[in-house]
Simulated scan of single mutants.
Amino acid sequence: MSSRELVVLGTSSAVPTRHRNHNGYLLRWDGQGFLFDPGEGTQRQMTYAGVSANDVHWICVTHFHGDHCLGVPGIVQRIARDKVRHRVRAVFPASGGTYWDRLRHATAFADTDVISEHPVSGEVAEVAPIVARRLSHPVESYGYRVQEPPGRRMLPEKLAAHGIRGPEVGELQRNGSVRGVTLAECSVPKPGQSVAFVMDTRLCDAVFELASGADLLVIESTFLSPEASLAKEYGHLTAEQAGQVAAQSGVRRLVLTHFSERYGFDDEPAFTEEVRRHFDGEVVLARDLMRIPVPKRRHAPSLHRPRSQDTQQPAK
């Protein structure tokens, strides 16, 4: 199993359907679990996906419309009931603090003290490793980006040419030089991996900033282009706009989700067609219980291998 993957728990928008649950996305990231927008029914979807409360380390709410947060009470109470011991950080718009409090304490239960609250405000906020940017929606909404710090990739041929081996390699990485040889002479920059999560919003600068160079972009595509005026009125994106964002931002793998209940599986080719007007990279139309890996790290051109088109698999 990939140590960095997206487990899709729900893909509908305002109204769940027979085949799509309300929103819910768990990003597995090096032993951490980032649960984005747990809508109604998320706790049950987690069971279907083989995900437990102990897999949740972050609860990230983009905004306080019900399809993005009505699952919070069940998740909180499950964390308490299962006696999760590790810290769980909750990130949400500060302006919705009243709604968070109502959801957090929605019913009587034996509470837990492992949840710490991190409300965000302003145009840009950071709760490392998460960066939040304010989007354009009728209520205050934030997009999130999980970003790994950049590093450096060691070049074996350069190390060998300088006679650096064994413990000296670690010394070079820690100190930046060894025996007069610098780290820059034996390595190249390695960008950190990133996942961007963009829910309810109109097109705005923040969408492109969140998506810039993302390895995986999870983005709403509530409507198709014939409903573009409706999308703008209610603060949403079309599939074509999602394709524009992915193309202009250099996204590696695009995941469409948050589909209006007016569309069924038979409409999926139309979503793909709209994206393809602008974006020729990898596209996944999310369905409940999919597992979607974060693309492997970028390598030098000589090391590239053809990418598999089978980028998703059912959750077990």
Score class of each variant (00 low, 15 high):
142 Y>A: 04
117 E>H: 11
95 S>V: 09
37 D>M: 08
55 D>I: 12
174 R>D: 11
116 S>Q: 13
51 V>P: 08
316 K>L: 15
285 L>W: 04
173 Q>M: 14
187 S>G: 09
174 R>A: 15
62 T>F: 00
170 G>F: 14
294 V>Y: 00
30 D>E: 11
46 M>T: 14
14 A>L: 09
144 Y>N: 06
56 V>R: 02
235 G>D: 00
220 E>R: 01
69 C>S: 00
298 R>H: 09
18 R>Q: 11
290 M>L: 10
288 D>E: 09
309 Q>M: 04
111 D>V: 08
306 P>A: 02
134 R>M: 10
136 S>D: 05
197 F>V: 05
251 V>W: 05
254 L>C: 02
103 L>P: 01
74 G>L: 15
226 P>A: 13
76 V>G: 07
201 T>K: 02
27 L>A: 13
170 G>I: 09
18 R>L: 07
302 S>I: 13
225 S>K: 07
112 T>S: 15
236 H>F: 05
216 L>D: 07
66 G>K: 05
304 H>G: 02
307 R>C: 00
73 P>M: 10
142 Y>M: 04
77 Q>Y: 08
267 D>R: 08
46 M>R: 03
265 F>A: 07
214 A>L: 02
45 Q>V: 14
148 E>V: 14
260 S>P: 01
142 Y>C: 10
82 D>E: 15
134 R>S: 06
100 W>P: 06
151 G>A: 09
260 S>R: 02
127 V>E: 11
312 Q>N: 03
121 S>N: 12
135 L>C: 03
54 N>G: 09
118 H>Y: 08
291 R>Y: 08
186 C>T: 08
